[in-house]
Amino acid sequence: MEEKEISPEESLKLIQSMIGKARRQYSDNSIFFLLWGWIVLVASLTHYYLAVYTSFEDPYIGWSLTLVGAVASAVIGAKKGKSRLVKNYMDKMYGWLWLSLGLAMFTIIFNGELVGWNTVPFILLFAGVGTAVSGAMMNFKPMQFGALAFWILSIIAFRQSENDQMLLMALGVALGYLLPGYIMKANSKKHGV
C-alpha cells in the first residue's frame, strides 16, 4: 500500500475493508474449554465413583485438580496475551466474562456448606451463562447448544442427590465444554485462525 491521495469513494471502501479485516480476527480459545472440560469430567466422575462404590472418606479429592486448572489457565492466558499481535475488544470481554464466572463458581463452592453442598446446579447455571455469551460473541452454534444443555441439566440437578449431581456435571461439561471445544479446535485448524 502506497501513501497516495484517494477519492472519497475509495476512502470509504478502504475503511470498510480494514474494519472488516479487524473484525474477522478471533482467537482460538478451545484450549480453555478442553482443559476445564477434562478436569471437571475426571473430578466429577471420580467423586461419583468414590462416593457410591467405595467407603473413601473424601470423595471430593479429585476437585483439587481445579487448582492445577486455575494455575494452568492463568499461565496459558498470560502467554497468549503476550504473543497476540492484536488486542480486540472481544478478547477482553471474553476474558472478563470467564474471570467473573470463575469467581462466582469459586464463591458458591467456598460457601458450599451453607447451601447444603448443593453447588452443582449453580455451577451448571454459571457455565451455561458463559457458554451462551461466548457462543453468541463468536456466532458459534455448538457452544450455544452446550449452553442450553447446561441450563436443562441445572434444572434437573436441583432435584437430585449430591452424588447423582456429579453425573449431570460430567454430562454438562461433555456437551457444553468438550464437544464445542473440539469442534472449535478443528475449525481453527481448518481456517488457520
Partner: peptide, 23 residues
C-alpha cells in the same frame, strides 16, 4: 487522514483495542 495508508491504519485501529506494528 485523506491518504491511503494512514487511513488504513486508523480504520484498523478504530476497531481494536491495540495492535502490533507487525499486524
Amino acid at each position: 487522514l485523506h491518504s491511503q495508508l494512514r487511513l488504513a491504519v486508523m480504520s484498523l485501529l478504530i476497531s481494536v483495542e491495540s495492535a502490533d506494528f507487525v499486524y
